[in-house]
Design a protein around this nucleic acid. Structure first.
Lengths: 220, 220
DNA sequence: ACTTATTTGTCCGTATGTATA
DNA sequence: CTATACATACGGACAAATAAG
């Protein structure tokens, strides 16, 4: 049985990921408490968890706000994320079992089906499963955890990146190249392909900066 | 002004780092509360932070215990650490300023002087500064933070590794090769050299497993 | 399997510090 | 600058769940 604060953390985290709570927005403990029908204590504990993950910032006696990530820091985070994922891909190419390959291909094909879905977020969600498959394929539990944590922090931005015109199709063909490299055991190639796939999002300074202002304006 | 739970987290973290609280040991909230002269609330908040860092493990309704790092997990952590440091080295080779070079060389020479110091920990401490120089040279604040965090968690094990006979001299010559590569801007070489330098500690399964039993016995 | 005891998870009251008029 | 209002940080109490006998 899961802890109450764990569930609350996930709920609040999701609200932040989908932009329901925008960066910089103040998180009122009492308000959240009544909203979820609990007291302030479990809310506080959930907020503390989010704070140690870097999702929100807690200023002593001044409450918590959703973390505002500067474009500079965002670039830095993508730079690290790309290397973490590259490492996952290299290890996956060497260590994946036939069952892992099957799971990866299934996730990949699920993305293919979602390419022209009416809801653009559908591809986003399936893409997440795809990346998680590669993390898991590294067979390094600590690395998987690190990758997941970073992924969660960058989630809102990765999602917005797919809104750029034509990005979904390009994303899929990049995925395809990665899959081939992994299955054929071309470790270094897999790493480089996945790194570039992630860094495309980081390299486009302008897109990202633009999405920054967009994310703070969109409340849904 | 810092929060109470922040200070408590640091205090408890230190107790764990110096072995005052051994891996697997149960952390009694009430006991810690009376020990620090506070109520259970700030203790709980500190524990939650330590749990999200992976320092302790909180099982629902069953309390918190100091995380037990299995040899398997230790290997995994070193595997990740080696890639993080490799990334730092690659970036450092491309981005270091002349001032950065000077700082790196200074730290390197400080290690050289400590090679035959009576206290073997002297080399360890100067080696830490050396590695921090490389982190800083990446000029990626987020990466620096990640590297520091991981470094802190592996600190006890890195220190023990240097007790192996002849390891200090080998460590220094590996450092030397890394320094040359960084200064000459050979990015990929610097990365690979530093990765191997770290992984030497991970590859020696037996040494690490041996140090595991030793570390749980030494209370000072 | 039942009872007891300890410990955690949650709620609420209060005081202190921050922001605002 | 003072005073007021309000949100946060902490303490204490209660209830529920687990472990022990």
């Amino acid at each position: 049985m899961k802890k109450r604060s764990e569930l609350l953390r996930e709920a609040i985290e999701e609200m932040i990921a989908v932009g329901k709570l925008a960066p910089g927005q103040h998180l009122d403990e009492t308000e959240l408490a009544t909203q979820f029908g609990v007291s302030r204590t479990p809310i506080r504990e959930a907020l503390i968890q989010l704070a140690s993950m870097g999702i929100i910032v807690m200023r002593p006696r001044r409450g918590a706000i959703v973390a505002e990530i500067s474009p500079q820091k965002l670039i830095e985070m993508f730079e690290v994320m790309s290397e973490i994922e590259a490492m996952c891909a290299r290890l996956a190419a060497r260590r994946m079992s036939p069952a892992d390959h099957a799971a990866l291909l299934a996730a990949h094909h699920a993305c293919e089906e979602a390419r022209n879905a009416p809801d653009p977020d559908e591809y986003f969600y399936r893409g997440e499963t795809f990346h998680q498959c590669i993390y898991a394929g590294s067979h390094n539990a600590f690395l998987i955890e690190q990758a997941r944590t970073l992924h969660r922090r960058l989630r809102p931005y990765r999602r917005l990146q797919l809104r750029v015109h034509g990005r979904i199709d390009k994303s899929f063909s990049e995925h395809d190249a990665v899959v081939q490299a992994i299955i054929e055991g071309r470790s270094d190639a897999a790493g480089e392909l996945l790194r570039d796939h992630i860094m495309i999002q980081g390299h486009r300074f302008t897109d990202l900066i633009a999405s920054l202002s967009r994310i703070s304006n969109q409340a849904a």
